[in-house]
Nucleic acid binder design. Structure first.
Lengths: 208, 208, 208, 208
DNA sequence: GATGAATGAGAATTCATTCAT
DNA sequence: AATGAATGAATTCTCATTCAT
């Protein structure tokens, strides 16, 4: 399972194997629980090899999670957001579906990385900050603005736009977290579950 | 901040201090990231003292998280569930409010413990199993049953009861996770946010 | 060869053995060339034992050299200096002999420590500073003052007192360095060598 | 600061840069404290490049210090020694001044190299031996012989010639060590200090 | 000749755990 | 029960050295 999405700026083959191994082990045991020797063994390299490119174990983590936040989390929300923003969605439902449909694929594709990110964010203020920056500044505003548009058109309930966003993403996050992180083996995320979740949000935000 | 709720069966004062210190440090750094010597220092006891009662570090974790799952997680859902089940809630809204109102207090009261549990569950199959047992077997059935009642009365949408439960608890979990674990410093969980969340769920589950 | 002079504030027996081993190995290989595992082996303790008391290898060095500077170097010059100052030495010769006689015993007794200090001072600014402080501030002034007395009495040449001190201690340092550090195995420091050195300084500083 | 004096037999430009970098870093951190990768970085070459010419790190040190001992230390004492020996110095003072004057320039010019040599000699028996050979055999005898001449003429005190040499060079070494190695930043080696040192030795060795 | 990725032995340090007091 | 010195295995990291390109 390669994660070519992340951090492959001129990595040698061995370094790429290190990154892949690290991803797997960080996901399985968490950052603190993973040992560099285990990573090296799984990658089939000498332990010292890890430290040629990454000065510290933490740098290895950051090289995985840091870019991921900008390259995966952000796109999950922002990607094609120009289109979403520009595109004149005929209604809120289209908007919501647009968000869910292609974004959930990104989530699925980057499951492990997201698992690592969610697991480690509580322990690494830098990551928290980065997430805030990426999500907060770049995305939040534009989404909120869009929400207001739909509110003005009377399509969704007139509560604080921030709250609308939180409700949508709480549902999304709850869905993701329970399916991917807490109980990944369950894999009950059938299509209709997703559809019902969308319906749930749609109705939950309806005005009357 | 004492957590008298958990594991105080005949603990000496020092042992109680150890538990309190462990809770704080496990929450801040995770199980693997916490060291027993740090815990001992914060508790103001000798390093060896920890191992008098708890044979291993892991046993210390389990003594905190294990009981917590039965004593806190379960009550969050089950407590007074006899009443909930017995009580003839006049409608689904009452039922939902009943769940949220007193349960969210439990969550707030046990914030740290829940943080630890959520952080560690992915790494400890035993915990996962215990959670399944407690939540799954004891609670899930009865909640589902109750949901079916409301569905028969036509109060909520007729989708698979399990999904209804997941939607409700996804919202709840999203709310809890984002407020308590990911961004505990934000503390925007104002009252009206909660109210809107309830409204959101109510409408989201309405039939038409 | 115990070095009970230094740093034995409530050391356990093992810790004392660590210090002794460290002194021997630091002296033989220098700080960077010595490994903690070698020290542990020579001390007959587990490597981890070193780090119970000394957080780092450097702290171990400092615990040896730091106190030594105040407790050995300083006394070499200052010890009984009250007497030297108070005592009305009938002439400069008595003064010089007083300095040399009992002080050189201190040097001999602390050979190894002095060797380490001299070897490491160039690489550790902290040590240099400490030496300056101890020697410079506490000692230099009072010696210089004493020198001036002898100059006024016409016993020694009237050049800058600082220079007199430097000439005396250059001779002393040259003697110590070549005998103890550079060529310790030669051990030609016979009594008459010392006597001639004193005569040499005496005549070298005579006025006419 | 190039040290063209040493080891430039057919060195490529890169190899010369390696030598220069090594000199700087060996001086600053000592042999054990210096890492080849740091040297490579400072020299602006690849890590492997060092090992093309020098099979080991130690060989690099030896290529610097070894030749230095013959090419710098020896000349300090021997250079023009034919002249010194042949030349009929009219008195001991001229002899002493001849030694000091042009030799101290050599010392100053090769400060760093001498610093390295003095720092490393205690740890490398080969260097000690080489120094003995060069200094001891080639120089010592002829100096001693010369000293005896002056003693016969009644110009200097009649103690063992070896001791005379040691007294002279102790003063010289004390001067060099304190000015260049221990406290290089002080740089108080003013001209008159030197003059006074010479006067000090002269008088110290006078007969009556 | 030069490079720099890779190595593996070993360095410093951490840490859960034991045990004599 | 409590202590805290001691342990030794494991962990992170360093570094001289090799070798294919």
């Amino acid at each position: 399972m390669e994660n070519k999405e992340v951090g492959q700026e001129q990595l040698t083959e061995k370094q790429q194997r290190i990154v892949d191994a690290a991803i797997e082990i960080f996901a399985a045991k968490g950052y603190s629980g993973a040992s560099t020797s285990e990573i090296a063994k799984k990658a089939g390299v000498a332990e010292g090899t890890i430290f040629r490119r990454y000065k510290t174990k933490k740098e290895l983590l950051m090289s995985i999670v840091g870019p991921m936040i900008s390259k995966v989390i952000a796109p999950i929300i922002v990607k094609d957001f120009d289109k979403v923003i520009t595109a004149d969605y005929k209604d809120f439902e289209s908007f919501l579906r647009a968000i869910f449909s292609n974004r959930l694929k990104l989530v699925e594709k980057n499951q492990i990385l997201i698992k690592i990110a969610i697991q480690e964010i509580p322990f690494h203020p830098e990551l928290k900050e980065k997430l805030f920056e990426v999500v907060g500044k770049e995305v939040f505003k534009s989404i909120c603005q869009r929400i207001e548009d739909f509110q003005l058109k009377g399509e969704i309930v007139k509560i604080h736009p921030k709250l609308v966003v939180q409700l949508i993403f709480s549902s999304l996050f709850g869905y993701v977290a329970s399916n991917f992180i807490l109980f990944p083996e369950r894999s009950v995320h059938q299509d209709n579950e997703l559809e019902h979740t969308i319906q749930f949000i749609l109705k939950g935000l309806r005005q009357y």
